[in-house]
């Protein structure tokens, strides 16, 4: 038993060290963002391999927040991620409820058809979507960035599963009282579905905030870049080695919202992953 405790201590130590290794790249990015640009042009290992931000400056963060397109990119990301989240929640909860509860003709065909969409990856549709949106003149607009994700059936799948799990006597009682579908849906089902919807909302938001391929194709005007895309454009510039601190500051700022969201809603994120993968 004593040996077991020793082994456990070693094991814990290993885990703690590994966790630190895992954190170091993030810490490094943050630290570089807090060092002067002209220092970074010469060296990225000023104090302790650059892990300690000394000399310390907030110039890069202030610069990125105050000028250039970064604030605009932030706004775009917020609009796209927010809009996408709302649209997915609305369409998925409505459809999920119908598939779980309303006996309508054609449902037996429709539901498998919708599930079949789960196997179509983004990469299989982004080229036709591109030409289609070009014909409609949708590119460089928020709608073009939001719409394709609304069509992905994973949200409908999650919500259907969830509504199926709610005992039927609740809505049956309400129906006997004469409540119609809409009232049952908004007054009874939606409040019950709050945990599932929170999870779906967070996963959608994270996806929208971090998506790269589709915005790269659809948004060609820098004013319409999301922060994720804008960050990529900063990276591939020739000027990269001249403005390291600023690029890193953009990276830090781009990550802050998702990191905060994650820390606040960790439980939902974790549950969402388990749910989203069909567990």
């Amino acid at each position: 038993m004593a040996g077991g405790r020793g082994a456990r201590r070693v094991w814990t130590l290993v885990l703690v060290l590994l966790a630190l290794v895992w954190l170091i790249p993030i810490v490094w990015m943050a630290s570089l963002a807090l060092q002067p640009n002209d220092l970074l042009a010469r060296t990225t290992s000023n104090v302790a391999w650059g892990l300690i931000p000394w000399p310390f400056t907030l110039d890069n963060l202030a610069f990125v927040l105050g000028s250039g397109l970064t604030p605009r990119w932030f706004l775009n990301s917020a609009i796209v991620a927010g809009g996408m989240t709302l649209a997915v929640l609305a369409t998925a909860s409505l459809a999920g409820y119908a598939f779980a509860r309303i006996p309508f003709p054609g449902k037996r065909v429709l539901f498998p058809l919708v599930l079949a969409g789960l196997v179509i990856p983004e990469q299989a549709v982004f080229i036709p979507l591109y030409t289609q949106f070009a014909e409609w003149g949708w590119h460089n607009g928020y709608l073009a960035l939001i719409a394709p994700r609304v069509a992905v059936p994973i949200g409908v799948f999650l919500m259907t599963q969830f509504f199926r799990g709610i005992p039927t006597y609740l809505d049956e009682a309400a129906a006997l009282d004469g409540a119609d579908r809409w009232v049952i849906f908004t007054r009874i089902m939606l409040p019950l579905a709050r945990p599932a919807m929170t999870t779906l909302a967070i996963l959608t938001f994270l996806y929208a905030w971090n998506d790269y391929l589709w915005p790269l194709v659809s948004a060609s005007r820098p004013e319409m870049f999301t922060i994720t895309l804008g960050l990529a454009s900063l990276q591939s510039n020739f000027a990269q080695s001249e403005g390291l601190g600023r690029v890193m500051a953009s990276g830090v700022l781009a990550s802050l919202p998702v990191v905060l969201l994650f820390l606040l809603f960790q439980r939902h994120v974790v549950r969402g992953i388990a749910m989203g993968s069909g567990k």
């Binding site: 591109y130 949106f133 070009a134 003149g137 590119h139 460089n140 790269l216 194709v217 060609s220 005007r221 820098p222 454009s233 900063l234 591939s236 510039n237 020739f238």
Partner: peptide, 17 residues
Amino acid sequence: TDWGNYYDQIKASYAGG
């Protein structure tokens, strides 16, 4: 826009816009 994606993107916006 950045140099790396410039030609790709100008083509895209030319075709798209």
